[in-house]
Amino acid sequence: MAAGGDHGSPDSYRSPLASRYASPEMCFVFSDRYKFRTWRQLWLWLAEAEQTLGLPITDEQIQEMKSNLENIDFKMAAEEEKRLRHDVMAHVHTFGHCCPKAAGIIHLGATSCYVGDNTDLIILRNALDLLLPKLARVISRLADFAKERASLPTLGFTHFQPAQLTTVGKRCCLWIQDLCMDLQNLKRVRDDLRFRGVKGTTGTQASFLQLFEGDDHKVEQLDKMVTEKAGFKRAFIITGQTYTRKVDIEVLSVLASLGASVHKICTDIRLLANLKEMEEPFEKQQIGSSAMPYKRNPMRSERCCSLARHLMTLVMDPLQTASVQWFERTLDDSANRRICLAEAFLTADTILNTLQNISEGLVVYPKVIERRIRQELPFMATENIIMAMVKAGGSRQDCHEKIRVLSQQAASVVKQEGGDNDLIERIQVDAYFSPIHSQLDHLLDPSSFTGRASQQVQRFLEEEVYPLLKPYESVMKVKAELCL
């Protein structure tokens, strides 16, 4: 049975990233139509530049190519590739079939990587351009969430054990800070992308030097003109047959890092959902379990974690691919890159769409948070109580021993009897502590235990987050809708 299948058929496997999760716009960027249309555009740009620099290419040939950029006979191309065992030459023939007058000058002087690699770089750039505003929107939604809850005390956790208090907004800023680093890295790697350009079979530009009869300047002009037509500021000066596969490492490393950030955020949300302090959106008709109707599973956060793990592992592909590119190139890269580049971007696209949807509907339960604080705060307040007693004339050592005994009794009630923490009640009825009984409410005010959390939130948002989001103001209103 021949390899390949009808990918629109229910009898043929289709990647869930495309069929179930990723956005239509990201799927289109990695589609065959987008790819092969870009090949034709690159052939047109090459012909236009070659004509401008004096090669015998007519206006009629150029116009014929322009008129057929979208006229792609995919069936013919597939048949040609089956016959020739070469995808680029299959599309040269297919393009030439609908451009008979231009057929002889299509791909003039070029090698397969002229269309293959340059198209990949265009796709990487455009895919990054799709991700950047999506990530900015996630940051914006979380920034709104953090600002609104900047002063809401909550129990902090280290080692997932109760620690000092923080605020809900401050905790959210930990998430935002990681995503801001990801946004900066995505922008950097996007701006650092260079075009492969017009380089020939081993990167020496020998074929173009021959076409222009040894004119170095025209060869350099050709490279520059096509690079500018493709919208790049610069091209690699040095290439082998391909652009260095280190570029793929750079791009997928940034995406993998984004995956790590999203995994951490969504894990926190899942843990908070278990504590009943916070939940992701839950639709009115949504079913959490087929057997347990009360369940409210954090399905979206779980999906993000599941896909983020996949995204983090994909960076190993370009690392290994770059390491086995012998001399000017081997074909070890080809099949692998067809999979890992598309999957990385479709996965990143999915987790950003999902995280935006989550961040637009996060639900906080202040009463649950308050109750958990009441359970733990008495123990945390013991040092403040000791200091207040010393100020009232008591002995630190005597007070410490009193607190120690009462704390152990209260802990026994919590752990052995399943009761509430009654340390404060014990202190309130103990005559030894009568000098500070009137101060206990103040000493137990949760806001006095959150330090500068709310001020940190305000400063972080104003100095770091809002300036970073400013270039994306025009796209901030787009909502994230999930079908599944």
Rank of each mutant, 00 (worst) to 15 (best):
H442C: 11
S257K: 10
G156T: 02
R404V: 09
L331S: 01
G451V: 04
L152F: 07
L44Y: 08
L377R: 02
C304L: 14
N118Y: 00
G418I: 02
A411I: 07
Q397L: 07
W43A: 00
I57Q: 02
Q41C: 15
V368A: 05
R33C: 13
D349M: 10
P378R: 01
G109L: 01
R338Y: 02
D216E: 09
A348M: 11
S438K: 14
T52R: 11
E48K: 05
V478R: 15
I237C: 09
A256R: 02
D349Y: 06
D192G: 11
Q285V: 15
E328F: 00
V247H: 11
D73F: 10
I265C: 13
A388S: 07
L183P: 04
V251Q: 07
A78R: 11
H159G: 02
L468Y: 12
R396H: 03
E277M: 07
S395C: 10
V92A: 14
L341K: 14
F327D: 02
T202M: 06
L311V: 08
K224V: 10
G240H: 14
K101N: 08
N336I: 12
S290R: 01
D73T: 10
H7K: 14
S290I: 01
I403Q: 05
S407D: 00
A453W: 02
S67Y: 13
G240Q: 05
Q241L: 02
Q205P: 00
E250A: 10
I369A: 13
M65V: 12
G203E: 00
A3D: 15
E283W: 03
A260M: 06
P298K: 00
D332P: 03
F236R: 05
V226L: 15
I237V: 08
F433S: 05
K246I: 01
G451R: 03
H437W: 12
M181P: 07
G4C: 15
H263N: 15
Q325D: 05
T450I: 11
V478K: 15
M380H: 03
Q325L: 13
V478M: 15
A110D: 10
Q41D: 09
E481P: 15
E425P: 07
I72H: 07
T52G: 12
A235C: 14
A163H: 00
P162H: 09
E79A: 10
L124M: 13
S454M: 08
S19A: 08
Q184A: 13
T227K: 10
A49Q: 03
L444C: 02
I427C: 09
M389N: 10
N126L: 05
S289T: 02
L258Q: 08
A344T: 05
L44G: 07
I358F: 07
N353G: 11
K391Y: 13
T227G: 09
I427P: 03
G419D: 08
Q41A: 08
S19T: 00
A146N: 05
L311G: 02
Q177K: 04
I265R: 02
Q397S: 10
R190W: 08
S301P: 05
C399V: 11
A308G: 11
L128Y: 15
H263P: 02
V219F: 04
G419Y: 07
K229E: 05
A388G: 08
H91G: 10
L211H: 06
L186R: 01
L69W: 09
V189Y: 07
R374I: 01
F74V: 15
R303W: 00
P378A: 03
F282W: 09
F36I: 15
M476W: 15
E328Q: 02
M316D: 09
V254S: 10
A392H: 13
K199T: 06
L406V: 10
A127F: 04
R20M: 00
R190H: 12
D216L: 07
Q63H: 10
N71G: 10
L346E: 08
Y21L: 02
H159Q: 02
Q210L: 07
A230E: 04
N421A: 13
A150D: 07
N357D: 09
I269Q: 04
K233N: 14
L108K: 01
H107S: 01
T450D: 02
D223P: 00
D349N: 08
R83P: 09
Q210F: 01
E473H: 12
D87M: 00
I385E: 02
K147S: 11
Q456V: 05
K402M: 11
E64L: 10
G169H: 02
M299H: 08
T204M: 05
